[in-house]
Computed example of a mutant assay.
Amino acid sequence: MCSSNVTTLKYFTINGISDVPELQVPIFLLVLSMYLISFGGNMTILLLVCLDSHLHTPMYFFLGNLSALDMSSTTITLHKVLVIFVSHDKIVSFIACMAQMFVFSSFSCDSLFILTAMSYDRYVAICNPLRYSTVMSPKVCILLAIVCWALGFSQILPILVFLASFTIYKSSNINHFFCDIVPLMRLSCNDTSSLELFIFINGIFMSTFPFLLTFFSYVFIILSVLKIKSNSGRRKAFYTCSSHLTVVILLYVTLGCQYLIPTSQDNLDSNKMFSLFNTAAVPMLNPVIYSLKNKHVKSALRRRLKCQVAI
């Protein structure tokens, strides 16, 4: 309940992942390891896509965009966890909190749309290979990427305006390890019914629309692959989609666990674990999935290493 003397807040306190003293060092080491692996892996993918001419194709162009998003989102969310452990400073300003929420949520939306663009790329490559270079021209790829980025930021902007307009809060303590939409909304003493309705409608568009586009792309891909007579041809076609499909399934499952499970006071800790997996583990696994299952990426990495050794 909100008391009558609650006023506008200028600062929030981030509780972090856990308050148990014995878990602070293990959590710090875990988060630091996940961040370094995620940042290093995605940076490697991004550099390979930029520097290796063999990866200058639509598929790897979108993969580079996904790596840039993963690096940015993990840095935005996990840096505060590391800062809290080192400096014990749990304070974050209202403006910084709003900015973190907006940028992270926008990047999360961008990732869904970029993965959808990648599924469309795979659909054209397998179902219409003769027109692939025309349909997925550099101009089209750049335009698709711009639309994906713009959609992510434009969807979250109204939510930011809603949250920034709230004036009174029950508490300054955010029971999370970064400023996310749901924890902030639950702290407000203002009427959040309009915001909840908007988030629900926006969530349908943000998740269902990209999911359906991806789903139907793979329906057509599977139907086309099944028409291939040779077993080697079918295996090659499925192989080109396996990495992307693995990342799509992983991301949608974790997002479903994080946002579709009701967040009561009793399961806030479990929700934080799902959130940690989504913000740290998934970006960490993406470059591993693409590098281990993709011969082109592994070949590009070997070429870059040989160049460095030669220098």
Rank of each mutant, 00 (worst) to 15 (best):
Asn267Met: 12
Arg186Gly: 06
Leu245Ala: 10
Arg302Glu: 14
Leu223Pro: 03
Gln265Glu: 10
Ser133Leu: 04
Ser264Val: 12
Ile174Thr: 00
Leu195Thr: 01
Ser137Cys: 11
Val31Met: 07
Leu223Ala: 01
Leu250Lys: 06
Leu112Arg: 13
Leu63Trp: 11
Lys80Leu: 11
Ala150Cys: 03
Ser154Asp: 05
Pro287Lys: 09
Ser111Thr: 14
Cys127Tyr: 02
Val20Trp: 14
Met206Cys: 13
Ser108Gln: 06
Leu78Arg: 06
Leu292Ser: 03
Ile174Asn: 02
Ala300Ile: 00
Phe62Gln: 08
Leu48Ala: 04
Asn173Val: 15
Phe61Met: 12
Ile76Pro: 04
Thr254Asp: 11
Tyr290Trp: 15
Lys227Ile: 04
Phe39Arg: 02
Met101Asn: 11
Gln155Asn: 08
Thr74Glu: 15
Ala145Ile: 05
Pro158Gln: 05
Lys90Asp: 06
Cys307Met: 10
Lys306Glu: 09
Lys80His: 04
Asp19Thr: 14
Leu9Lys: 07
Leu112Asn: 08
Glu196Asp: 09
Ala281Pro: 00
Leu63Met: 13
Thr263Cys: 05
Ser188Ile: 00
Leu66Arg: 05
Ser137Asn: 14
Ile76Lys: 01
Phe238Trp: 12
Phe39Pro: 07
Asn271Tyr: 06
Asp52Leu: 10
Met71His: 00
Ser217Met: 01
Ile261His: 00
Tyr11Ile: 08
Val282Cys: 06
Ser275Trp: 12
Asn271Ile: 10
Thr8Gln: 11
Leu301Pro: 02
Tyr239Arg: 14
Ser154Phe: 06
Val92Lys: 10
Asn5Pro: 01
Ile17Pro: 00
Phe85Ser: 07
Ala145Gly: 02
Ala280Cys: 12
Val124Leu: 07
Thr57Val: 02
Arg235Phe: 07
Leu63Pro: 03
Val161Arg: 15
Ser165Arg: 14
Tyr123Asn: 05
Phe198Ile: 09
Ile261Gly: 03
Phe39Ala: 14
Val124Thr: 05
Arg235Met: 08
Ile311Leu: 13
Leu23Lys: 12
Phe277Thr: 14
Thr208Gly: 12
Phe200Tyr: 07
Ser299Met: 07
Phe200Met: 04
Leu23Tyr: 06
Lys170Cys: 00
Phe94Tyr: 05
Leu151Met: 07
Lys293Asp: 03
Phe62Gly: 04
